[in-house]
Structures are given as structure tokens and as C-alpha cells.
Design a binder for these strands. Sequence first.
RNA 1: GUCCCCAUCGUCUAGUGGCCCAGGACUCCGGCCUUUCACGCCGGCAACAGGGGUUCGACUCCCCUUGGGGACGCCA
Length: 490
Amino acid sequence: MPPKVRVRFAPSPTGYLHIGGARTALFNWLFARHHHGTFILRIEDTDQQRSTDEALAAIIDGLKWLGIDWDEGPGVGGEYGPYNQMARLEIYQREAKRLLASEAVYKCFCTPEELEKMREKAREQKVAPRYDGRCRSLSPTEVAEREAKGDPFVLRFRVPSGTTTFEDMVRGPITFENVEIDDLIILRSDGTPTYNFSVSVDDETMKITHVIRGEDHISNTPKQILLLRAMGVEPPEYGHVSLIMGEDGARLSKRHGATAVGAYEDLGYLPEAMFNFLALLGWSPKDNREIMTWQEMVRDFDIQNVAGTAAIFNPKKLEWMNGMYIRALSDEELAERFAPFLIKAGLMTEGGIASHREWLIKLAHATKERLHLLTDIVPYSDFFFRDIESYPEKDVKKHWSKPAVVTHLTALADILKDCEPFEAQTIEARCHEYIEREGIKLGDLVHPARLALTGKTVGPGFYETVELLGRERCLSRLRKALVHTQGHKQ
RNA sequence: GUCCCCAUCGUCUAGUGGCCCAGGACUCCGGCCUUUCACGCCGGCAACAGGGGUUCGACUCCCCUUGGGGACGCCA
């Protein structure tokens, strides 16, 4: 029986959770859940300059928002911890000492300045910038002397000759000539590990079985394989998913708009829509299904079906999908979801939300099929909360210029005055009676009336709008409109 | 510069040698429904990067070219 699947998402807490990172996390999570394995969150915080607690919190919030939970890692613990690298320093140092003893690594006394000079020169000569190996064969006495002098040194990996091949789960076999690989530093002069080393040690000590990560790590893979072999262990399986690009084909970045997952939350996206959309960026169930529950995705996910092709982030489709998910919500759920946005827009208060639950559910019902984003609730409902200041000139011209408008609005006011119960259905029935009696078209009544009641020409269904507004406000807005139309004519 | 990855409609993708003069979805454009806006439904535009092979037969396999992306840090 093969060992239980263990995968990890290993962000460095140097910024927000990026769309690309979120998808990588998602694929790992899907893979783990599909195989009934373990999903681990590991924090790669060895870059002390750039790692922050805020960034860590943002990443954790982003994952939680998306519904991605982890079985081991920050907040939940686990038997292979600690799960942040700065707390694992002794482990790396112990491992480095072992590698030093086996001569797989060596001490290098080159300074950052010297190395920069080397790279500079390489750039000028247009050759691959790389370490020239000048400390590779320092004699033990030389090493001892420089150490005695107190010269700082780093530990470098003595990359063996040959070729390194691995079977990528999404791309098939990938081969590198070892001569192309630099003698990389594994331990800095301050004793902290560098990326490739800490990753290798952690993947091994945390018993990671499959590494699913971005394409930008392909060139790191042979280094990690070689390091792992030098440590005497078998590397895990690797699968590299392509990067997510912006509309112009360049790597997705700030200038393409929001790239932080948290920004999409603020924009009114539903996490389940985001989850679904991200999963489909590179993966497909092969049978034309698109809207799927996470259970279905877990059931059908297969890393081998993930495309190696770069995917361009398509905000339009995300928006469409979000609308689909909004429509699938119950009225109660939708009301709960958009309530925070009503508060944020200053239209309602916390207390108002609590005391108008039934009303909000009706609002949800009336607006549901019109929303693409939760924030869309604002333009579709702001007139319920604010008095109408003015009527757009061109709408007035279009809907209020016929003389009969005054008659119709007056009639509507009469109808609403004693319409019982004051509900969409009865209001609709009474309005129909009226238009039939008058022999007019429904639009002759509804269009001028909508403008009077909402100050707009677009909005939720007319009768529902009337009910939601309530009798008193309808009557006063009708009066105000009547004043406006008559004043206009003089 | 060197190495690595990738290449089907504008975009996300299905297609693993004949089922494909290429299917679905988003976008866009028509039409229907309709009190607006939406939703929904119906229909339309739109792709195998180019060139060589292999094969009875290539979107599918191989090579080259081109194009895009990534990597080459005491960053991760």
C-alpha cells in the first residue's frame, strides 16, 4: 500500500494571498482531499527582511475565505511541526552539518560583493551568470586559516556531475544537465537556510509525498532532488502547474487589477464562485461541466488532467460565474451575504439589518437575478434608503413629457392609498384593473411611476419595488413627482 | 546569453491517430420572453502558429522554425 498522500502549500509571508498562490493552494487541497490525504500549510519565513505578521494573517484569511482548510500548520499544529521555518533553524543546521561531514557541501568565503562582480562580468560577456567554484577545492588548512581569521562563510552544495530527470505529474519527463546547475548556497553566513535547502529538508522531514507548485519552480526541482539524494532520501513526486497571466499575456500583476484574493472579497465575489473559477483555470473535468460543488471537484480532480498551458485570468467569466452562484443562493442566504455591503455603503446599520430581516429577504428575492456581484446590491437598492434628490434630465424627458402622466401618477396614488394588503400581488392586480379600464399599456403607467418612486429607470420588478418601499413612501414620492411634473410644465 | 516549460476560437477549455470541414463555456452580435434592467431560452461570429516528416489517415506522434512564459540571488 502506497504511503498516505501528504501535500503542502508553502507561501512566504511577504504579501497578500495572490490569485496564483490561491490556485496552487487549491490544487494541493483538491489533490489531498481527493486522495484522502493530508494538506499542510507551511510558512516559509526565512526572508527576515520581508516577512511580516500582517502578510501571514492576510494569507490565512484568504485561504479560510476560499474554504481551504489545512490539517497541519499554523493554528492547528500537527506532529511534524513546527510549521514556520524560522522555528526550524536547528533542523536545517543539523542537516547542513551532516552534509558538510559527507563533503556534499563546502565552506565558501566569497563575499556578496565578489559574487556580484562575478555576475556583472558574466552579464557583460553574455554568458550564464554563475558561481565559478573558487572555494570548491580549498584545502583544509586554508579553510581553517580563514575561519581562524573570523572570515564569514556560507555553505555551498557541491553539485555532482551527470543529469537529473524527474517525471512531472503534469508535464511528463523533464531533464536537466547538472553542469547547468550552480553550486548553490544552502546556509547563509548568518546560519539561516536558503530556499532550496529549507524546502528540501522540510519536504523530507514532513514526509511530503507530492509537491504541486507553480511552473516558476521547475528549475529549482533538480536542485532539490540532488539535495535530497545527497541527504540519502528519495525525493517526492513533482507536478508543476502553469502560471496565471493577465489579459496581455504577461504574468498577472497589480497593473492587471486586483490580484489579492482579499480584494475580490471586497469587490463582492462569493468564495465558492472564486473557488470554482480558479479550479477551472488549468483543470477541467473533461465533460463540459463548469459549475460544480467542491465535493464534485474533490471527487473528480486529477492532477494528470491539469493543463501545462499558461492560463489568462478572465475577469468577465469570473463575474458571470459569480452571478450564477448568487442565483443559486436562497433569499435568506443572499440577504445575509449582501448585508455587509449595505452597511459599508452607508445605507444601513448593523441594527437596521437585524430588525429588518424579513424586508431584506424580500429585497434579496427582488434583486437576485440582477446581481453579478454582491456590491451590485447598492445601485439596485440605494433608493430604498435615501430620498430622491433629483430626476435625471433625459429620463424626465422620456417618461414624463406626456400630459397623461399626471393622470396616471395620480391614479396610482389613489390605488396605493387603499390597496390591501400592501403586497406585490395585489398591487399588480389593481394596476392591471386600471390600465384595462383606461385602455393604456402597462408601460405607460410603470415607466413614469418607476422614475417617480426610485429616481431611476432601471431596478427590481416594479410591484416588488412598490411593496418594499411601503405605502407612505410611495405616496410621498408620488406627490413629489407630481409637483415636479406640474412645475415643469409651467 | 544559457537552460527549462508551453502552443486548439479574443479568453478558459474538450479532443490522447479515423467518432472533428473540431465540442462546451465566457465575451460579442441577432431573436424570443418582458414594466425597465436583468434572468432564461433560441441562433450566429470565431481556433488546430508555420514548415517538414511518420502513417492508408494527423488537432492528436517526431523534428525544425516562430511566438509566449519561466529560471539563472547569502529572495521565496
